[in-house]
């Protein structure tokens, strides 16, 4: 999978959120909450697809957040 500009931007945004969420506790939950509150469902879905097909481009905290989203059904 070759990431286009939009996908690269999503990756950058997600990794940036992971690096900036305020609390060191429950980083995955904070990321998941942030993208739920501010991202469209399509953007979350695209991020999930990137996580599955190009896992290396996302920070581990973002993968953890994707798991949280998957678990509560908002990642699609």
């Amino acid at each position: 999978m070759t990431l286009d500009y939009t996908q690269q931007h999503l990756v950058k945004m997600a990794n940036q959120i992971a690096g900036n969420v305020p609390s060191p506790e429950d980083v995955a939950g904070q990321i998941a909450d942030h993208v739920t509150r501010f991202w469209t469902p399509a953007m979350r879905s695209d991020l999930g697809r990137i996580g599955r097909e190009e896992p290396g481009v996302l920070a581990s905290e973002v993968h953890a957040a994707l798991a949280v989203l998957e678990a509560d059904g908002t990642g699609r």
Partner: peptide
Amino acid sequence: PGMRIPNMLDAAVS
């Protein structure tokens, strides 16, 4: 939520 301006622009390019 809907798209922000940069998201709209990205989606337009796509």
